[in-house]
Every structure is written in C-alpha cells, then in structure tokens.
C-alpha cells in the first residue's frame, strides 16, 4: 500500500543514500587499509560537523527508506492488516533513527 508521498519519500531517500553509501564504503576501506585504531578514528570524528552531517543525513535517509520498504514487505508478504501499516512504518523509522542517531552522537560528540 504505497501512495504518492511514500513513493516519493522512498525515491528521494534512495537518491540521497546512493552517494552516502559510496562515501561510507570508501571511508571504511580507507580506515581499514591504513590500520586506524578506534581512538584514531574517534580523534577524526569527534567535534567534526562534517562527519556529523554526513552520517546524520545517512541515518535519516536509511530510516525513511527502510521503514517504507518494510511496510511493503509486511503488507504483501506477511499479510499485515492495513490498519497496522502506518504504526509499523512510524515505529521502524523511529527505532532506526534513534539507534542510528545514538551511534552518530557517540562518534561525533
């Protein structure tokens, strides 16, 4: 049960995620290949507005995108009743935003 607004929200979040995923993978490869320790990574991320914005945006886009995707799966594959779809979408989105936001806060602040 996807209407116009949910469709656009999922497409726009995918549009945001595409470069962010590439940036995230590139960062991971860089960090691993140069043998950075956790404290060296935290030295770079703590207090950095750039990394906060990068991963904050990433978490926001993932929360929107995954919540709408799971909504479609819950309805079409698991036959979840329509009245549960909005609560499910909001719950998944909020939980992902909360967990992701907590992780971002931990490495930036």
């Amino acid at each position: 049960m996807i209407g116009l607004r949910l469709y656009l929200a999922q497409r726009l979040s995918a549009f945001l995620m595409a470069p962010l995923v590439i940036g995230h993978i590139a960062t991971m490869i860089y960090a691993v290949q140069n043998g950075l320790t956790a404290s060296e990574i935290l030295d770079r991320t703590q207090g950095s507005l750039w990394w906060g914005a990068f991963y904050g945006l990433f978490v926001g886009a993932v929360s929107v995108h995954a919540a709408i995707g799971l909504r479609a799966i819950a309805f079409e594959t698991l036959n979840l009743p329509v009245r549960w779809l909005n609560p499910l979408t909001w719950t998944v989105g909020m939980v992902l935003a909360l967990l992701g936001g907590r992780a971002v806060a931990a490495v930036v602040f």
């Binding site: 049960m1 996807i2 209407g3 116009l4 949910l6 469709y7 479609a72």
Partner: peptide, 9 residues
C-alpha cells in the same frame, strides 16, 4: 492512479 492501490505499488 496515484491512490493507495495505484501505480506506485
């Protein structure tokens, strides 16, 4: 066509 059962599904 853009309502809940429409093209976006």
């Amino acid at each position: 066509v853009s309502a809940d059962g429409g093209c976006f599904n």
